[in-house]
Nucleic acid binder design. Structure first.
Lengths: 397, 397
DNA sequence: GTGTCGGCCGTCTGCCGACAA
DNA sequence: TTGTCGGCAGACGGCCGACAC
């Protein structure tokens, strides 16, 4: 297998190559829950989930007029040939481009799992902080107030013998642009501030109160700088290029054609716009769908991102199991689980989730499973199984 | 037939309805060569031309991997059910949304032409001016220098007894937003200037030197204000929503599905991005393809837009006639004419044009044509003809 | 006729500590 | 600990006629 140099591996910040952007910063901007499957690995692609991303982006639901593609199954097992990380030049919105190739029936039979196939959760950088911008931070009247712990952890140490202690910080964004800031420790009581250079950044990125900035101090002693915009309602523009119907059709046609000819196709995954990931590591899918028992009434946990860019678990109960769209996507595992959430302020959370998104709480040990651990076990009549890995390595946390 | 209230007719500037924008201003921004077919009329839709628009917008050519749709002809005869004019909220870029319905074979046989079917050329407003912005116009140092004739023709007269003569102008843009300017006549020599309010407009619209502004004084004594951005290379962003392959496929799939089921589909036409119009009044198409004799070596004229938003003719010679894309779109009339241009500085102009875009110069009278002028003449075995109109009414100028 | 400039004034940017939550 | 404010100095916005092409 040929691995592209541009991909999940750490990139050196080479200004010449625009495909080459910092993986660490990309993941920090994408959020702690976003993980990209490894290049070369096997994944499951859900056209239905891809369609949902487009529906959110265009703010238009799928039209009932759109024809079915009876030949297109609700999930395609693919090899992930390439993943490249990108950021919109205008908005800095992060997205990933993936090249997928549906596997032939024969290839599906020959699959063997490797531990890496489960998909490593996105490794968030350790030396970083993320601050929600206040009105004062974005006002023209002043600079940026750096939270004390953040400054001490992430910024290079100041020389406190100077009065006042100050230094110049140089940070690079996703496009490898350089931003200079004066970092000063002053005031009564003393505090860390970014002054000169800050307002240029705010106006260039068009930041407003409520947006977040993100500083990373990486292992190469570089300062990285990303932004995350607040979810502004109706920021999405009705794309004047293609009607939303044609977009949905384009997704289906591209996937159907690729599936019919076992040829490669390209998709974009927009982690902050998409309601859910729709390219799932095959092992994660198989584990959730075939090796986990769920039933109505069962309790579960699910991870969500917090305001401060960390994760927390919410608890819920399974209230039903069944097809989301019986007519168009029968027998799909996409969002097949109806759920209720414990906390009342859960208007934001989905009423339907997919099996691989949740962590069922069982009172009895599920593992070891009844399936054997033999190596290179072929798929028995289309029902996938595991081999080549220890199941207890598959825990998500 | 049901005609939508939102369409080609003059709209009153009703701030409440966002679909309702000023037709006169839209056409002025679109340019003098752009015309939209009448609602309810018959048109020819070229998927190939639509694809070209997407190729330009995404800056990516059609991938050879994209499958053919053998059932999709290179041109679809459709009824144009609806046309609505729009402008991008961010950029003010004008575009039109069209709802098309392919005609069944039976319906095609029953077509009769009406004079209106030829498509009236876009009626540009009379009281308007368009100025290319200079460095001084867009600089923060000063205001906008109004060309003298333009001010006298388009702006309300000043009271020259005042010293200096001045007034407040209120103009509305495509989104019906109000912009106020101080219009003053001062300096030595005397000149018309827009001062207070101008810089707010420039920064809100993000205008730079080279962009154009457009003022219209309409028959309702309203001042309208549009913008036209210079063709900035590579302004187009690689849409992070859908791969360009999927977009091209979406176009084909949508058209093929609509053609197979005689159902409606929706397209967007972006007059300033698209290399050519790809929805052509049926009568114009029939006239050009079936009632005009062209041959290699023949001289012709073709209209182009000038910098100042007026039109001029360029002369050329037909150098060849044949399919642009023999494999994918055989027997298409789209850009079937290879041409050479008289003027050497013609790097901008297409090397291939469609028959309906050019005006062949003949030394002998082409009309009356051998086809009869009978009313309601059905199409003879797929070869279209004219009826219900006088051919000399079909001249394009 | 109109693009650009120097001059000049007024507003706003942006750095500071004060203060309170 | 940090969000917001008043105070203040300097930069820039923005209106003017001069001048040249």
């Amino acid at each position: 297998m040929k691995l592209s140099a541009v991909g999940l591996n750490q990139q050196s910040p080479d200004a010449g190559d625009k495909n080459c952007l910092n993986s660490e910063l990309w993941h920090a901007c994408a959020g702690p829950l976003v993980s990209l499957a490894a290049i070369g690995s096997h994944v499951v692609y859900f056209p239905q989930g891809h369609s949902e991303q487009v529906a959110v982006s265009t703010n238009k639901e799928v039209d009932a007029q759109i024809p079915n593609y009876p030949s297109l199954p609700p999930q395609l097992i693919c090899q992930l040939h390439n993943v490249t990380m990108h950021a919109d030049l205008e908005t800095d919105e992060v997205y990933a481009q993936m090249t997928l190739q549906p596997l032939s029936t024969q290839e599906q039979k020959e699959i063997s799992f490797l531990p890496a196939d489960l998909g490593t959760p996105s490794k968030q950088p350790t030396n970083y902080f993320c601050k929600n911008l206040t009105a004062s931070d974005t006002s023209t009247h002043g600079g940026f107030s750096v939270p004390r712990r953040a400054a001490e952890k992430v910024f290079p140490p100041l020389d406190f013998s100077l009065q006042p202690p100050a230094q110049e910080l140089i940070a690079r964004d996703l496009h490898n642009n350089e931003w200079k800031f004066r970092h000063i420790f002053r005031g009564q009581p003393k505090r860390h501030l970014l002054t000169t250079g800050w307002s240029v950044f705010v106006s260039a990125k068009r930041l407003i109160a409520g947006d977040s900035v993100l500083f990373i101090w990486n292992e190469k002693n570089q300062l990285l700088l990303g932004i995350r915009r607040a979810n502004r309602p109706q920021t999405v523009m009705p794309s004047s290029v293609l009607s939303s119907d044609s977009m949905h059709l384009g997704i289906l046609a591209a996937a159907a054609h690729a599936a019919a000819t076992n040829s490669r196709f390209t998709i974009f995954y927009n982690p902050r716009a998409s309601p859910s990931e729709f390219v799932i590591p095959l092992a994660k899918y198989v584990k959730a769908v075939y090796h986990t028992r769920v039933s109505v009434g069962m309790r579960f946990r699910m991870l969500f991102e917090t305001e401060e860019s960390s994760v927390r678990r919410y608890m819920g109960t399974i209230t039903g199991i069944g097809d989301l769209d019986l007519a168009r996507w029968p027998n799909s595992h996409w969002r097949s689980v109806k759920v209720g959430w414990d906390e009342s302020a859960s208007g934001e959370r989905q009423l339907r989730v997919s099996l691989w998104e949740i962590e069922p709480l069982t009172t009895f040990p599920m593992y070891p499973s009844p399936f054997s651990l033999r190596l290179k076990r072929p798929w028995p009549s289309g029902l996938p199984s595991f081999s080549g890995m220890k199941l207890d390595e598959m825990g998500l946390n």
